[in-house]
């Protein structure tokens, strides 16, 4: 597509893609209280970059592999009793981030833009990045649509779903892999430190305007798209870093959602 020859349009396209996919996925992250889980995967992405560079793979592939490995590990560790869950996540999040930075800094042979990985470098998105994101995004949405009902069922009540025959372990495991894929894809857009916000802020902003889970997912996507649009525009206008500006725009939208009165009939106190 010739339009993708312009770096600005590549940035817009990548941002909108990630925002649209993050909406539904972010809703589940919020409903299942997995914000910290998402953060941990995101932090480990940096180790994936280092891994990719060491092994001579592309950083995208390295990130994907690292995120998936960690998601599988965390899935298997669920239910362990030795450490509280958030302590375990904290250990993994920060040690993988630290090891990733140390590993990258020792690679004197090449210049690696650490800030780009930490806070995103959406203006440097290439056509091949976009191909990755589009493929991954469509794949994630397809799989999510397939597991939507069982995932929603185990989110609402795990035992009830299990008694009805929902494969709890595999549904959860697949969901974690979807998060891993989207984090690997979103790293270029907002960076590993801000990725989780792109999932949870639009979802949180959407809550008061939705009466069904599906509506909340759709509204979250729209909020995310608006945040990317507004953030990119502001970043060009005032020459601010794109990733953080997108997140700031999402925060503004969230604040507005608190003030705006929801349409009658929506929200939790209706009836």
């Amino acid at each position: 597509m010739p339009i993708l020859d312009d770096f600005i349009w590549r940035a817009v396209f990548a941002g909108l893609l990630i925002a649209a996919v993050s909406g539904p996925l972010g809703c589940f992250v919020v409903w299942r209280r997995m914000a910290y889980f998402g953060d941990t995967l995101a932090h480990s992405a940096l180790m994936g970059v280092a891994l990719g560079l060491v092994l001579g793979l592309s950083p995208n592939l390295g990130t994907l592999v690292a995120c998936i490995l960690l998601a599988v590990l965390l899935g298997l560790l669920e239910g362990q009793r030795r450490l509280p869950g958030d302590t375990l996540l904290g250990i993994l999040a920060h040690s993988t981030l630290a090891i990733g930075i140390v590993a990258i800094s020792t690679m004197t042979s090449m210049r690696v833009d650490l800030m780009g990985y930490l806070f995103g470098d959406i203006l440097a998105v290439t056509k091949s990045d976009i191909a990755w994101m589009a493929g991954g995004g469509v794949g994630v949405l397809l799989v999510l649509a397939l597991i939507w009902r069982p995932l929603l069922a185990i989110t609402i009540h795990r035992d009830l779903a299990a008694a009805e025959g929902v494969p709890v372990f595999w549904t959860r495991q697949i969901f974690m892999l979807l998060i891993a894929v989207i984090i690997a894809g979103a790293m270029k857009v907002v960076g590993v430190l801000l990725i989780t916000s792109l999932m949870i802020i639009p979802a949180a902003a959407a809550r008061r305007f939705a009466r069904t889970p599906e509506a909340m997912a759709a509204i979250a996507s729209l909020v995310g798209v608006a945040a990317v649009g507004g953030g990119l525009w502001s970043s060009f206008r005032w020459d601010t870093p794109a990733g953080p500006t997108i997140v700031a725009a999402a925060a503004v939208l969230f604040t507005l959602s608190l003030i705006a009165s929801p349409p009658s009939g929506a929200g939790s106190s209706s009836g």
């Binding site: 409903w31 989110t155 609402i156 009540h157 009830l160 008694a163 009466r211 069904t212 909340m216 939790s268």
Partner: peptide
């Protein structure tokens, strides 16, 4: 099955 202790998290809209 009707489980003991059932509440839908307020953050999850559900009819």
């Amino acid at each position: 099955y009707v489980p003991q202790r059932f509440a839908v998290d307020p953050v999850l809209p559900l009819t």
